[in-house]
Nucleic acid binder design. Structure first.
Lengths: 155, 155
DNA sequence: GGTGAAATCTGCATTCT
DNA sequence: AGAATGCAGATTTCACC
């Protein structure tokens, strides 16, 4: 695993903002040849620094305009219960993110659905059927002020 | 704004999992010509259904291995205070996501830093300088069980 | 809305430095 | 390690169904 230099970081910075940039275009911006850019990107893909390339879609045009954060405390914390709960919830389409947390609740889920009624259905038909939930608190996103996948790669 | 049909959804589904698929490859999978695929993607980019293409990087190789969710209650809720707070925090590099919430706290921030010491610095030097914070609670991600940007486009 | 072919541009392997 | 070359293959436009 080679260390990343300033040029690598600059290339990553461009790609995490726009994955459709061609090597030629990147080369122009970092003042390197196409080949140099190509080889560095290839190396970083192989290293796993670049995990994948994805298209970001507009939730509003795909009927996913309601986002909720669901905070969950389990009834008990045996390894098996934690494992099973995690395995079950990550399989649900509505669950975009699932984190096992330190602190006063065990899990934070980010849920993406069409409306409150769909969220209700999700709770009743999916989450509550796991039966290991001790406490649950739902809060809803009124406004998404920032939602970024790109890190600042301070250069 | 044209409505999306089943073919559009299928193409979106492929692209939100792998933005590097060629039109040829997509065409093979949806049984359409390269041009048909090309035109539909172009239309959906213009419509804003496809917002952008990004590279997803590995936080662990970029010194962002600690994620926290910071729950914030403001001291007061005048329009100006809310607006200023939002404007300030979204500008911070450590803040990957910022949501204005309904319920018992006003904002949830997803913070991404290198370690606890960096999180401490972020609180002291950045968040607490806004001076409008009433209550703040930090919880830390111990395990990221799921982190997906792709919606299920049930077809 | 769809197709197929032509033109142009990129990706990627090879070779040279 | 990066630059130059060249071919294969991709994107994009266009004429037509």
């Amino acid at each position: 695993m080679t260390k990343l230099d300033a040029l690598d970081l600059k290339i990553l910075d461009l790609l995490q903002k726009d994955a459709r940039l061609t090597n030629k275009e990147i080369g122009l911006r970092v003042h390197k040849s196409i080949t140099a850019v190509y080889e560095r990107i290839k190396r970083m893909e192989d290293q796993g620094v670049i995990k994948r390339y994805v298209a970001i879609l507009d939730p509003n045009q795909l009927n996913r305009q309601l986002n909720a954060f669901t905070h969950i405390q389990l009834k008990d914390h045996s390894k098996q219960v934690l494992f099973d709960f995690e395995k079950t919830v990550v399989a649900y389409d509505e669950v975009m993110e699932c984190y096992h947390m330190s602190g006063s609740y065990d899990f934070i889920l980010k849920i993406s659905v069409s409306d409150l009624s769909a969220y209700h259905d999700f709770l009743i038909n999916k989450l509550f059927t796991t039966a290991v939930i001790g406490h649950l608190e739902s809060t809803f996103v009124m406004r998404e002020a920032k939602m970024d996948t790109a890190f600042n790669l301070d250069m």
